[in-house]
C-alpha cells in the first residue's frame, strides 16, 4: 500500500501474560477500541512502527505528485487540467496532514525528509512506474487511488487517534480522485479506437503494480501480525488485495477493457475472483531501487529540496529578523 512492509521491531507477538502491567493496560485499551493519543503512554515499538508507517505514507503522497504532475501541462482540456491540479494539490495536502500526524510521535518533518532523501525511508513502490500517456492519469486515479482507498478505509479505524482522524479526511478526497480517474477511462473507452487502445494499454501496465501496492502475502509476517494486534492495521494484505480485485474486475468489464491476467475467473464458492500470481520478484526489485523510475523520482525530490534550501533559509532568516526587531522595539505604554 502507501506504506508497504512496515517493520515493527517485533520477533513475535507477545501474549497478554508476557506483558508488563503498563503494556497490558495499553493492549487492553487497544482491545477495547479506545484511541491512543499523543500524550498517552505507548510501547516504543508501537511508536516506531507508526512513525515508519505514517512517514512512508506521507512520502508516498509527496513523491506521488511527480508521476501525475508529469501530465498537468499536457492535460487535454482546461477542465481536465483544473481537475488534475486540484487532485495533485490534495495529495500535497495529504502529505502535510500526515507529516503533522507523525510529528505528534516526536519526529520532525525535516528529519523525515532527510530519511527520504537518504533512501532510509521508503515510499510506495507504485510511484516508481512511469506515466507514459494520458490514459495513465486515468489508470492512476482509478487503480492506484482505488487501491489506496481500499487500504485507507480500514486505517480510519486505526488505534492511533491522529492517524485515524487524518485518514477520515483523506478518504473523502480520495474517493473524488478515484472517480476522476474512472471518468477519464470512461471518456477514452467511449472515444476513438486509438483512445480505447490507450486505455487498454494503461490498464495492462498498471494492473499488476496496483496489486503489488498491498504488499506481499502477510500470512507469515510477524510485522503484519503485530500491526494487527496493535490495531494499526485491521485487515491483511491478501484480504485487501482480494477486495480490490473483486471491486475492480467488474469496473474493467463495464469499460469494455480486459484485465491482463488469464487466471481471473469468478469463484462462486468463495464469492470472489480467483487471480494469478503476482510477480513478487519485480516488487522486491522496485523496492530495492531498481524500478523504472526510482532514480528519477529520488533525483527530482532531492534536487527540489537542495535547490530550495536558499528559500527555506531566507524565510527563517527573515522570521529571525522580525523577532529580533520586535524584541528591540519598546512596548508602547498601555
Amino acid at each position: 500500500m502507501y506504506a508497504q512492509l512496515v517493520k515493527t521491531d517485533a520477533d513475535r507477538v507477545k501474549s497478554i501474560d508476557e506483558m508488563d502491567p503498563q503494556e497490558r493496560t495499553f493492549q487492553q485499551r487497544i482491545d477495547d477500541n479506545q484511541k491512543i493519543e499523543p500524550k498517552d503512554w505507548m510501547p516504543e515499538g508501537y511508536r516506531k512502527t507508526l512513525v515508519r508507517q505514517i512517514g512512508q505514507h506521507a512520502h508516498s503522497e509527496i513523491v506521488g505528485q511527480l508521476p501525475e504532475g508529469n501530465w498537468i501541462t499536457r492535460a487535454p482540456t482546461l477542465e481536465r487540467k483544473a481537475i488534475l491540479l486540484a487532485k495533485v494539490q490534495d495529495e500535497a495536502g495529504h502529505g502535510l496532514y500526515l507529516y503533522c500526524a507523525a510529528e505528534t510521535l516526536g519526529i520532525s518533518r525535516d528529519k523525515m525528509m532527510d530519511q527520504l532523501h537518504a533512501g532510509k525511508s521508503k515510499y510506495s513502490s507504485i510511484f516508481n512506474y512511469p506515466t507514459l500517456t494520458w490514459a495513465d492519469i486515468g489508470a492512476v486515479g482509478w487503480l492506484v487511488d482505488g487501491a489506496a482507498i481500499m487500504n485507507q478505509v480500514q486505517l480510519q479505524r486505526c488505534s492511533y487517534g491522529p492517524y485515524s482522524r487524518a485518514m477520515v479526511r483523506i478518504c473523502k478526497e480520495e474517493s473524488f480522485h478515484q472517480r476522476q480517474g474512472y471518468d477519464i477511462m470512461m471518456k477514452l473507452c467511449q472515444g476513438t479506437p486509438e483512445q480505447k487502445e490507450m486505455a487498454q494499454d494503461a490498464l495492462n501496465r498498471w494492473w499488476w503494480p496496483s496489486l503489488m501496492m498491498f504488499g506481499p502475502p502477510d500470512a507469515d509476517s510477524v510485522h503484519s501480525a503485530q500491526s494487527m494486534a496493535w490495531k494499526i492495521k485491521q485487515a491483511t494484505n491478501d484480504d485487501l488485495r482480494q477486495r480490490f480485485v473483486d471491486q475492480t474486475v467488474p469496473q474493467a468489464e463495464y469499460l469494455g477493457l480486459k484485465v491482463p491476467d488469464p487466471d481471473v475467473k469468478w469463484n462462486e464458492e468463495k464469492g470472489g475472483y480467483d487471480y494469478g500470481e503476482v510477480d513478487w520478484d519485480e516488487f522486491y526489485e522496485v523496492l530495492k531501487g531498481n524500478g523504472p523510475c526510482n532514480a528519477e523520482r529520488m533525483h527530482d525530490r532531492v534536487k527540489a529540496w537542495e535547490d530550495g534550501a536558499w528559500v527555506r533559509e531566507g524565510l527563517v532568516a527573515h522570521a529571525d529578523k522580525m523577532a529580533a526587531r520586535a524584541a528591540a522595539t519598546p512596548v508602547a505604554a498601555e
Binding site: E68, I72, L78, V88, Q89, G93, G95
Partner: peptide, 29 residues
Amino acid sequence: VSEWCGHSPVLEEDIALANTALDLIGQTQ
C-alpha cells in the same frame, strides 16, 4: 506555475503553487 508541481522548495509552496495555477486555469475558462 503548474510546471512546479512536486518540485517546490517546501511542501506548503507545492500546495500554494498548485492552488494559484488552479485559480488561473479557472479564470482562463
